[in-house]
Simulated assay, not measured.
Amino acid sequence: MTGSRVRIERDDELDGLVTVTLDRPEKLNALDIALHDELQEALAALEVDHAARVVVLTGAGRAFSAGAQLGDRRPTPPLNDIDRRARAHLGGRTCELIDRLPQVTVGVANGLAVGGAVVLLSCCDLRLAAESAWFSIPEVELDLPLTWQALPRLMRELGPARTRELVMACERFTSAQAREWGFVNHVHPDAELPAATRALVARLLSKDPLALASTKAACAALANAMVPKEVTWSDPELMLLAYRQASLRARSPG
């Protein structure tokens, strides 16, 4: 299945592998509303696709994703505050759908990953990165709260001190640092990343399907018990408030 912004491919050689590619290379795979819509549709279908056992999430071109496309709005006006709240949580719903996948998910940072893109990767079970890849979480620098239930996910993977530093100081970090801090499992030379990804997927697919699926489910439950993502239940409201404050600043003559 191929949309205008997301490409879904079943592998002819590795039975059970589905690759999901963010496919806006001319925009560094920025996460606009249409991309979220396509990705959510694909993820919902994969959740009940029992032929798929491993899902790889990556980007086309030289970026994994430049993150949320700021200022992007649906053409139709919101109906009411509940509608506005739902729209503010669009990226959060994408993350929830990745979380719900029963397949083992492998995030492949083939290039830069910024803001919401880092959050998407944090939802994956395993992560690989190219040597040239780099990461950034600039929301606070942009006067935005970090939502999409990112904080509990990052706390699990990076620990409290490192998470605080990255989300408050907003400093860029390299793939080597991401591996050192435990955010990615392995870093590979750019040209070797596709082969390394396939080798990891082949190892996963060689395991007993039920044993692998039950282990993935147990790991997910344990991770959520460590830092429950539900503690950030107010993320949609925080983002809606940020949008309103930005609108007020834009209208203020000062």
Rank of each mutant, 00 (worst) to 15 (best):
A221P: 08
R87T: 04
H89G: 15
D37N: 03
L35C: 02
K207Q: 11
L241F: 11
V184H: 03
E47N: 13
R156S: 14
E13L: 07
D99M: 06
A196T: 01
C170P: 15
L28P: 01
N185Y: 01
L193I: 13
V119C: 10
C95S: 11
A161Y: 09
I137K: 02
A246W: 07
V114Y: 02
W134Y: 14
L101K: 09
L151E: 10
A195Y: 00
V184M: 07
E139R: 03
P78A: 12
A51D: 15
Q69N: 00
L97W: 00
E139G: 05
D235I: 04
G16W: 06
R153C: 03
P145M: 02
G182F: 15
W134C: 04
L70E: 15
D72S: 12
P77D: 10
D125A: 09
G91M: 13
N224A: 15
D72Q: 06
R164L: 11
P194D: 01
V48K: 11
Q149P: 02
V201S: 00
L241E: 12
H36W: 11
R5S: 15
Y243C: 10
L158F: 13
G67C: 08
G111S: 09
L151H: 07
R62Y: 10
T174E: 00
L31D: 05
P189G: 04
L79N: 06
S136N: 11
Q69D: 06
L70P: 14
T197D: 02
A217Q: 14
I8M: 13
T105H: 05
Q103T: 14
W181C: 02
V106R: 00
V167Y: 02
W134F: 15
T58Y: 00
T232P: 00
W181M: 07
R85Y: 10
E96Y: 01
E230N: 04
A202P: 03
A225M: 08
M1S: 13
W233V: 12
K207N: 09
A250K: 12
V56H: 06
I33S: 06
A86C: 08
L31P: 05
A221C: 12
E180N: 11
F64V: 09
E38F: 09
E171C: 05
P102C: 04
F173S: 07
R162I: 15
E237A: 14
M226N: 12
T94G: 00
A150R: 06
V167K: 01
G92V: 02
G111R: 01
E192W: 03
E165N: 03
S214V: 11
C124G: 05
M226D: 14
T19C: 01
L90K: 04
S4Q: 11
Q103V: 08
S252Q: 10
A217E: 11
M239H: 07
T94C: 04
D208K: 10
V118Y: 05
S4R: 11
S234R: 13
L112I: 12
G92C: 02
